[in-house]
């Protein structure tokens, strides 16, 4: 290292991280702690889907009451809530993305 003070370049850091991961030196952050059993996965997915739907229905209902647009926003938010539930489930089982925002692997 000749007089470089800012530490190694990022590409080196990245390669080091990849190598460490490959050899299992870094603790793997588990995003789904309940993934031990199929039961756990099922309950987890159900909870995620239902809870985002509940939140969305709540928001839609309150907005409707506030703005006086009775059925419209509720309907919109039911769809958004379903989408949010699917997003949550995707986040549970998506392959862990690399920190640099790179593609898979």
């Amino acid at each position: 290292m000749d007089g470089r003070s800012g530490g190694p370049e990022p590409s080196f850091q990245e390669r080091l991280r990849a190598a460490r991961r490959r050899h299992g030196l870094d603790p793997v952050v588990t995003r789904e702690p309940e993934a031990f059993s199929p039961w756990g996965i099922g309950l987890r997915v159900g909870a995620e889907l239902v809870s985002s739907l509940v939140v969305a229905v709540g928001i839609g209902w309150l907005l409707d009451r506030w703005l006086g647009t009775r059925p419209i926003l509720l309907g919109v938010f039911v769809l958004l809530g379903g989408a949010a539930g699917v997003v949550n489930v995707w986040r549970l089982f998506a392959p862990p993305s690399s920190p640099g925002g790179k593609g898979p692997k």
Partner: peptide
């Protein structure tokens, strides 16, 4: 307009899924 509400709902849904579990 589509992503932001979905993300906000997804964030708020923690408030339900965590205690209900």
């Amino acid at each position: 307009p589509l992503i932001v509400p979905v993300e906000i709902i997804s964030y708020l849904s923690r408030l339900i899924s965590l205690p209900v579990r």
